[in-house]
Simulated assay, not measured.
Amino acid sequence: MSDNLLNLQGVHTHIGQYHILHGVDLAIPRGQLTMLLGRNGAGKTTTLRTIMGLWQASQGSITFDGRDITRLPTPEIAQAGIAYVPENMAIFADLTVRENLVLAARNGDLDPHRLKWIFGLFPALEKFWSLAAGVLSGGQKQMLAIARAIVEPRDLLLIDEPTKGLAPAIIMNMVQAFKELKSTGATILLVEQNFLAAKLLGDHVAVMDDGRVVHRGAMAELAEDAALQQKLLGLSMDAHQ
């Protein structure tokens, strides 16, 4: 079996008249965390949405665990074992924390052992279990969004900018939660703009620019190469720590 759980080959995506992805090639190693970095508008979110079938690839192929999912509808892609946490979190503000998690469980039942593990990652969710999700803080809502994605075991997690707008202390809590997720052998593709979080979490990195992947490699190597950071991202990670 391939060491790569997900493969994109020559993927193009059009949204209306706009050509957003221009032949994306991307391989996501099984059981590791891959950072997807790039300037604003580089195509990172479009890549995640195309993987999930929310936007259809107009050319190229997407293979997940050996299965071609390029043309599958989003519900089938989710059923195949991929969870997606969008940038806007997509929680149900009028429902309680508990109800949000029940809805995310495919059979409507919450595994008490897995729930205990989730509470270990995000203690605030247990504290606010019966409260409407809309009253949670921004960081707590993000925790709930991630908890919804992992309420059942998933083979692949696609997560879009989980630390955006969060206070530094909450970001470090989020980093610790992702480290715990990594320790379980989860495969994660993470879009992130916080470079300290990227440095702490990433095993691998792919950098996008203008709808293409322009760099692939080890996250540690990019983290140590200020000149390459400047070339690829227009700034140095050291300036954002």
Score class of each variant (00 low, 15 high):
L5R: 09
L8D: 02
Q9N: 10
G10E: 14
V11G: 01
V11T: 01
H14R: 13
G16V: 09
Y18R: 14
H19E: 12
L21D: 04
L21G: 03
L21W: 11
V24A: 07
D25W: 10
D25V: 08
A27C: 01
I28H: 09
P29D: 06
P29T: 09
G31R: 12
Q32A: 12
L36R: 14
L36Q: 14
L37P: 00
L37E: 03
L37H: 04
G38K: 08
G41M: 10
G41S: 09
A42W: 08
K44I: 08
K44H: 07
T45H: 05
T45R: 07
T47E: 06
T47P: 03
T50L: 06
Q56A: 13
A57T: 06
S58Y: 07
G60Y: 07
S61A: 13
F64M: 03
F64T: 03
D65V: 02
D65A: 15
D65E: 09
G66Y: 09
D68M: 10
I69S: 10
R71I: 01
L72D: 15
E76K: 15
E76M: 12
I77M: 06
I77G: 08
A80G: 03
G81E: 06
I82R: 07
Y84E: 04
P86Y: 07
E87Y: 00
A90N: 11
A90V: 01
I91E: 06
I91Q: 04
F92I: 13
F92Q: 06
T96Q: 07
V97N: 02
E99G: 00
N100F: 14
N100I: 13
A104I: 05
A104R: 01
N107V: 02
R114P: 00
R114V: 03
L115P: 01
K116P: 00
K116Q: 13
W117L: 00
W117A: 06
I118F: 03
I118N: 04
F119S: 03
F119K: 05
L121K: 07
A124M: 12
A124D: 13
L125V: 05
L125K: 01
L125S: 00
F128G: 00
L131E: 14
V135D: 04
Q142A: 02
M143P: 03
M143S: 11
L144D: 11
A145T: 09
A145Y: 13
I146D: 02
A147V: 12
E152K: 13
E152V: 08
P153I: 12
P153E: 06
R154T: 13
D155A: 15
I159A: 10
D160I: 04
K164W: 02
L166Q: 07
P168V: 09
A169F: 05
I170M: 14
I171K: 08
M172R: 14
L181G: 02
K182H: 05
T184Y: 11
T184E: 14
I188F: 12
L190S: 03
V191P: 03
V191N: 09
E192I: 08
Q193T: 12
N194M: 02
F195R: 00
D203Y: 08
H204T: 10
M208I: 08
D209V: 03
D210N: 13
G211F: 10
V213H: 04
R216H: 12
A218Q: 13
A218T: 10
A218W: 07
L222S: 00
E224D: 15
E224G: 15
E224W: 01
A227C: 02
L228Q: 14
K231L: 06
D238F: 01
A239G: 08
H240Y: 13
Q241D: 03
